[in-house]
């Protein structure tokens, strides 16, 4: 049986794998007898094989750390535990997910409320402003002008003292040129409730007290 060089090489390779039957082996050896080139190739392959084993053995022929039987059996039995662990983890992830969804929902809800109308029950900004307006109103309502008719022996100082205001205020508001006041003269007195000193009477009684027609009727005939 004649074989080519290529076939011989293939057979050499198969021979290395111990996969040649007797007939092919004989044919290969017959070819190698005559062919130096193929013989060299066969020797090369043999060298590769012979060198592989010692180098591998030197690198890998080591002894393992003997396995701990306790660790092995406990880890084998932990199969059930791992399934429990998996279930716990899944449940925890679920809880976290639900919590996240809930908080996100709450967040969007509160956003919608603040953009639409102010939240019920909480009045962060309006409270102080309302207080200030109410006091303003109080001042406005209590501040009123009183028409005072100057009596005998009244001076600007005494009138100012009586209403607990400065005489300059009276001068300014009545557009007076001098500080002298004469009897039966009409003076506008600014009166605010916030400064109620001196007199105990209410502004309403003051007006009635100080604008009596009796005074006018009593004194006007003289003037």
């Amino acid at each position: 049986m004649q074989i080519t060089h290529d076939e011989a090489r293939k057979l050499i390779q198969f021979n290395a794998d111990e996969a040649l039957n007797l007939q092919k082996k004989t044919a290969l050896y017959a070819h190698l007898e005559d062919c130096i080139e193929c013989r060299v190739y066969a020797e090369d392959i043999k060298e590769v094989e012979s060198r592989l084993l010692p180098v591998m053995k030197r690198q890998w022929n080591l002894q393992p750390v003997p396995l701990s039987m306790d660790a092995l059996t406990s880890k084998r039995d932990s199969k059930i535990q791992t399934s429990i662990l998996l279930a716990t983890r899944t449940a925890m992830i679920g809880v976290v997910f639900v919590a996240f969804i809930f908080s996100a929902w709450q967040f969007t809800l509160s956003n919608r409320q603040t953009s639409g109308q102010s939240p019920v029950g909480v009045l962060p900004v309006p409270t102080p402003s309302k207080q200030s307006t109410s006091t303003k109103i109080m001042q406005q309502t209590t501040c009123e002008e009183i028409l005072y008719i100057v009596q005998e022996n009244d001076t600007l100082e005494s009138i100012a003292h009586q209403f607990s205001i400065s005489k300059e205020e009276i001068i300014t508001i009545n557009n007076m040129k001098t500080e002298t006041v004469i009897r039966a003269m009409e003076l506008i007195i600014p009166k605010c409730n916030s400064t109620p000193t001196g007199t105990a009477e209410s502004p309403a009684t003051l007006t009635t007290t100080y604008t009596p027609s009796i005074n006018l009727t009593t004194f006007t005939p003289d003037g």
């Binding site: 293939k10 390779q13 290395a16 996969a19 060298e47 590769v48």
Partner: peptide
Amino acid sequence: IHSRLHNAREKLR
């Protein structure tokens, strides 16, 4: 397997 061994041996050679 044969062809892989063949190729590998060629490379090593």
